[in-house]
């Protein structure tokens, strides 16, 4: 399914509905699910993508990719929180775009070309071992964040997951920029220490 920018604009103005109903629409393979998602979470997802990409055109493209991936994922997946599910897809998509762009901007030398060619020889990160390791690391990060006070946790997730600017994150967490900066620094140090204790040496 290919969703154009025009389609997204056309569906504006549709009344919002609950997440459960939107998910049901996906499960029924009803195309209005995408329009409803756009209506309800379009701005939210665009913001996440823009935070990562810093470019509106690429951001809109990433959001459109998100709708497409969501369409593919549901069914069989039934997300617990639709907004988070969509945000994760957008985030991953946008980060992939950034990485692709960064790679494209590298100096066109033979060394870089060889790196790209050699990358093909290395098995990708989807091996069972790497996947387990990544999940363990993710769980450790989760545990560490759970030990943090709510204010600190919100700030950390806002800054590093939602990739909001320090100013914005500090603002919606109700603290000064200086305090937020100091708090983030302490949290990073704490996370590093925690991961080392858990046996992760990245």
């Amino acid at each position: 399914m290919r969703l154009s920018k025009r389609t997204i604009i056309a569906v504006k103005g549709v009344s919002s509905m609950t997440d459960e109903r939107i998910v049901d629409l996906y499960w029924k393979r009803d195309e209005s699910a995408v329009a409803q998602t756009q209506e309800k979470y379009g701005h939210y997802l665009t913001k996440i993508a823009y935070n990562i990409l810093g470019n509106m055109e690429d951001s809109l493209e990433s959001v459109n990719d998100t709708y497409m991936r969501a369409w593919k994922a549901m069914p069989p997946h039934r997300p617990k929180v639709l907004s988070v599910f969509l945000a994760k897809i957008t985030r991953r998509t946008a980060i992939d775009v950034v990485r692709r762009h960064t790679r494209e901007k590298r100096i066109p030398s033979e060394y870089i070309y060889s790196l790209t060619e050699l990358e093909e020889c290395i098995p990708d990160g989807n091996t069972a071992e790497q996947a387990v390791e990544a999940e363990l690391l993710a769980k450790a990060i989760n545990r560490c964040l759970c030990t943090l006070p709510q204010e600190t946790r919100n700030l950390f997730i806002g800054r590093y997951y939602s990739l909001d600017s320090l100013k914005d994150a500090a603002n919606y967490c109700g603290m000064s920029e200086t305090k937020a900066k100091a708090l983030l620094y302490r949290t990073r140090c704490g996370l590093k220490e925690y991961l080392q204790k858990e046996g992760f040496y990245i």
Binding site: Y44, P79, K80, V81, S83, V84, F85, A87, K88, R91, R92, I95, R99, A134, E135, L137, A138, I141, N142, L145, C146, Q150, R153, N154, I157, G158, Y160, Y161, S162, D164, Y172, C173, I202
Partner: peptide, 22 residues
């Protein structure tokens, strides 16, 4: 980049809480 990838696997409730605050 690795940490960013891992953050994608964060607990949904935790992220939802932050989203609500945002």
């Amino acid at each position: 980049e690795l940490i960013h990838d891992e953050l994608n696997l964060l607990d949904e409730d935790m992220i939802a809480q932050t989203d609500n605050l945002r």
